[in-house]
Simulated assay, not measured.
Amino acid sequence: MKLTDIIGYLAAFGTTISFLPQAVKTIQTKNTEGISLAMYAIFTLGTLLWLIYGIMSASWPVAAANAVTFIFASTILIYKVRYK
């Protein structure tokens, strides 16, 4: 494995792991009061676009990190709309 891939996977792991505790808490409590709908919609779209970019460019660290983040971000966005 190339050094750039290792760095990419470490970066992907770090950013995704840092997002998960808040995502899990939000999913468990369904409390989205402090989340901006516009910001989260844009964030989720951006994550989807990064996922597509990662797949199209065969950048697997980018694709993997954004796949996980997109799943959680989408769930939170749905909660934000549903439990408004």
Rank of each mutant, 00 (worst) to 15 (best):
S18T: 15
L3K: 15
T47P: 00
T75E: 01
Y9N: 12
T4H: 12
E33L: 07
A38V: 13
I71T: 14
Y9D: 06
G54W: 04
G8A: 10
G46A: 09
Q22N: 11
S18M: 15
P21C: 12
I55D: 02
P21V: 13
S18H: 08
L77M: 09
G54Y: 04
I76F: 03
V24H: 04
A38L: 14
I27K: 07
R82H: 06
D5M: 11
A12L: 09
S59F: 04
L45T: 14
K2L: 11
T15E: 03
K80S: 02
R82C: 01
I55W: 10
K2F: 05
K25C: 02
A58D: 12
G14H: 08
F19P: 00
T75G: 06
S74W: 03
W50F: 13
Y79D: 07
L45K: 06
L37H: 05
M39K: 03
T75S: 11
A64C: 08
I76W: 01
L48P: 00
N31Y: 05
A67E: 02
G46P: 05
T47S: 13
T47Q: 09
K30L: 10
I35A: 03
A63R: 10
I35L: 15
Q28P: 00
I55C: 07
I71M: 11
A41M: 12
I42K: 01
F13E: 01
K84M: 07
Q22K: 14
F19K: 09
I27H: 03
P61D: 11
A67L: 15
W60D: 04
A63N: 08
I6T: 14
K30A: 10
E33M: 05
I35S: 03
S74E: 04
Y40W: 14
G14N: 07
K84D: 07
V81Y: 12
D5K: 07
N66T: 10
F13D: 01
F43R: 00
L77W: 02
Y79E: 10
Y40L: 13
P21I: 13
Y9Q: 09
A58G: 02
S36D: 07
A65L: 11
V62N: 02
K25V: 05
I17H: 02
L3H: 07
I52M: 14
I35R: 03
T75F: 11
L37Y: 08
M39W: 05
L77D: 01
Y83P: 00
L51A: 06
L10V: 15
G14M: 14
G54F: 05
S57W: 04
N66E: 08
A11V: 15
F43A: 03
T4G: 00
T29K: 14
Y9H: 13
I17S: 11
L49S: 10
M39R: 01
